[in-house]
Amino acid sequence: MNEWFGLLGIVIASASILALRQPLVAILDSVLERLDSRFERQVWCRQSDTAMAVTLLFPGLGILAVFGFAPLIYALYISLFDTRAGAFAGPGNYVRAWHDPEFWGGIRVTIYYAIGTIPATLLLSFGVAWLLFRIGRGRGFFRTVYFLPYVTSAVAAATVWRVLLRPHSGYVNALMEALGLPTQLWLIEQRGVLHLLTNGWIGPEVGPSLALCCIIAFDIWHASGFGVVIFLAGLTAIPRELEEAAIVDGARPWQVMTRVVLPLLSPTVFFLAIVSAIKAFQAFNSFYALTNTARSTDTQNLVIYIYSQLYESQNYGYGATVAVCLCVAIVGLTLVQWRVLGRWVHYE
């Protein structure tokens, strides 16, 4: 019965739209005309441009405000409450975070992860894109091949990686055994990779754990495809004449790369560096899917910590506090990147 009412509603709404289409268009036209005439009357053209820009941006900004800024402000608001006690806490949650070893552990894991993924992803993407750019033939095919991991669901891909990296009888360990190498616990190994590589000479708690390195490796593999496509687009946009001119002038391949290609590619690198940094600080899927939520602190980044505070401890105030701290960190990092990397960017 409800479905019929729904259908009837859709029919009536469609008919109304059809009937009112012309008057609506007329009203809209007159509004735009008035706006145009008002803009034309403006002394400063720049001001009318701003007004037009704001008008056009309004729908997008509205969506951003409701789904982006509003939750952020709400998070800021509830971060001032001890939601378990239902009492106003003021800066109490922030003081708690300052003294919380798990919060700092989360920051450490996030930084290890960012350092592990961003440069490696950029280098690998650039390397692959450069090779693809050079081969000419079959570029489309290989571009699809390298882009495939990126379009594969992270959870599905992580499930396959979990099977490969099973600690006792996984395929990777079987391969290691066949090669006469010691098998590893992979995703459940909490000891530091430096500890394992130095045979215990460095303490087990120093550096990222092997489990975290597995997550980093997974994300480099998963995210590189995106970088490859963006770098390829950047490389394609570089005028070939510039490279040819440099070669005619006697530049060696390395010099062409560093003096011509990389400066012209700097906006692409800048874009990818900023996007990768933001993504690294917001990483969740791979951590969650590979470790089945962080039971151990060595793979608990800030986002997983927020998740566990919200959904496992039902500590909404404190979870929001950590989220606000993470947001501030991302904004701060992006501004620093903007300032530092921005100087190096060449927009010609």
């Binding site: 608001y77 509830i78 239902g86």
Partner: peptide
């Protein structure tokens, strides 16, 4: 828009 959307009237989550 921000103030309307931020849901202040709802107050903090009610775990109590």
């Amino acid at each position: 828009v921000v103030i309307t959307g931020c849901g202040v009237p709802g107050g903090p989550p009610d775990t109590q």
